[in-house]
Write a protein that binds this DNA or RNA. Structure first.
Lengths: 308, 308
DNA sequence: CTAGTTATGCTCACTGGGAGCATTATGAGC
DNA sequence: GCTCATAATGCTCCCAGTGAGCATAACTAG
């Protein structure tokens, strides 16, 4: 029996390129006339790219001019119906997460607020906005509409688990999938020909790209807690409040200022530079820098995000 | 500019199928005459398999007779040199982790102790065995042989971080990659034509399959701590000691018995059945079963493995 | 009945994190 | 210069989770 029968498929590398600016997480999208925005996507150059990651870096550089720092493979998407435009060839996409410091809007692309795509993921404001309230209400309706009692119970459970309390930021992907399965996203209508949902559920992307973005957010939120990835998104020197705001932007929740400071300082993640930020108002903050040697001391250094 | 130029590649689905029996984690390999053991691997059927995961389930079933329960995509491997036997076509593999309850040895395949592949990952015995001692010694030598002081320091750091203390079970993949990079694995010799390492570093698999196995172990150890995946590996009813031994087998460390019991019972992960195990020696243990509704109550239920 | 073995109950100390009060250092407006 | 608003920073108190170990209960083998 052959151990290595292989299928021929068409593969692209899709990138979720994330930056944080003005307290909001943003990701890069590209526009094509007459189409929803899409994640930047490029091919593997089978001849030149020794690895998938090098392929991604190459075309991101050539296309957007960005030299991405941190890169991490997310997931490989290969559902049959993910690219309805394609022929019989299976369209497989390897999704990547890349982190960059805020920059000029790059060539042929623009930054979009992550929470314009996934509005329910921003829980920094304790009162849910009208969009989120509508989504929660629609989920209740969906749960109550199950065919029989078992289905209704199971739906209600999924809603309760994923939309909390307690809020679990890492469940971003599961929330996206729940909304898709509840037919509350325009993607569902697009993929099935059903009528569009009556409520605003954020900006949809092309193909399954919003799902890939949700995957990236989940992964990034998880990683935040046990690896020092935030610093990829910050300038070399930063105040603790800037650090906190960046973490909060990604995590989608607010944190207790004094405790955050205590945690970060005690963890050895950062060291003071002695420099002060010029202050707008209030006492000027000390500027800190990341202390890479923390990896030697603590096996899993991350900023404390109390997800649970 | 095309947003969707795609490369044609040859894709397989490789499975790390894990079970735990007699206190040892095992994974399934297939043998081909004259070759090292390999992970079971199969093609996507582009016509029939609507998703990659369904494709994996289909060929695992048809080939081994196993109906796998829990399945999770691990990583996609696409390095140019990962399949030196291949022609110009890029050979891409999507690795999956699957968990099954212990079974008869399936068709055309056999169970292999995970720690026969990755002997340094079993830290349940506080004294390192002779193999592990040799590996650690060889790593020290490698670190000391760096070209200049910076390289030596960086190597020593990587060794210290990955081989602890404190021991971090989740770094299994990083340890594998460190050993590969230190030229201590026969795979390095095979891939580069260099002479084989002089020490025993466990059973190598074909291609990059041992790397995929290490990826699976890392992922599984991580998942253990925040999702109730252990129960996929256990019979419906089990004693708390069986549960503990299963966790220890996967985590590669030993746990404090009373505290483990307290943790598991308080977490709501299990419920007593009132039944008793027939005892070999000592007081008979109560049999417990997994309580799925724990997911409603706790957002991230897992058995406590103190990795840090 | 005794020794050996495992299950189970419980205590104690320590730590990390949640919450909030208090103090210090700055800019803006007068 | 004085006062107020605004941040940064320092510190305390409390509690839940957890590491470690002692003590007791319930079996089996002889």
């Amino acid at each position: 029996m052959m151990a290595d029968a292989a299928a021929l498929v068409a593969m692209t590398l899709d990138a979720v390129i994330v930056a944080v600016s003005q307290g909001r997480p943003r990701l890069l999208v590209v526009d094509e006339p007459g189409q929803p925005p899409a994640l930047p996507s490029g091919p593997l150059d089978v001849e030149r790219d020794a690895t998938l990651e090098l392929g991604l870096r190459r075309w991101v550089r050539s296309r957007t001019g960005l030299e991405v720092g941190y890169v991490e493979q997310l997931y490989t998407f290969g559902d049959r119906d993910r690219r309805p435009d394609a022929g019989p060839q299976r369209q497989v996409s390897v999704g990547y997460l890349a982190l960059v410091e805020e920059t000029e809007p790059p060539l042929d692309a623009r930054w979009v607020d992550v929470y314009a795509l996934l509005p329910w993921e921003d829980q920094r404001d304790p009162e849910p906005g009208p969009e989120e309230a509508a989504i929660r209400a629609a989920l209740e309706v969906w749960a109550a509409q199950g065919a029989d009692a078992d289905v209704r119970r199971e739906r209600a459970e999924r809603v309760a688990v994923n939309f909390g309390p307690p809020w679990d930021g890492i469940r971003a992907l599961e929330r996206y999938e729940l909304l898709y399965g509840a037919h509350l996203l325009p993607e569902w209508a697009r993929d099935t020909g059903a009528p569009p949902p009556g409520i605003d559920t954020g900006i949809a992307l092309r193909f399954d790209h919003r799902r890939i973005a949700a995957t990236a957010l989940s992964r990034l939120r998880g990683k935040l807690t046990y690896r020092p990835v935030v610093f990829e998104l910050l300038p070399e020197r930063f105040s603790l409040l800037e650090l906190q705001h960046t973490v909060e932007a990604l995590a989608g929740i607010t944190l207790h200022k004094q405790n955050f400071r205590r945690l970060v300082e005690r963890s050895g993640l950062v060291e003071g530079t002695g420099q002060r930020a010029r202050s707008q108002a209030g006492r000027p903050a000390e500027l800190f820098r990341f202390r890479p040697s923390v990896q030697r001391e603590r096996p899993r250094p991350g900023v404390g995000v109390p997800y649970r």
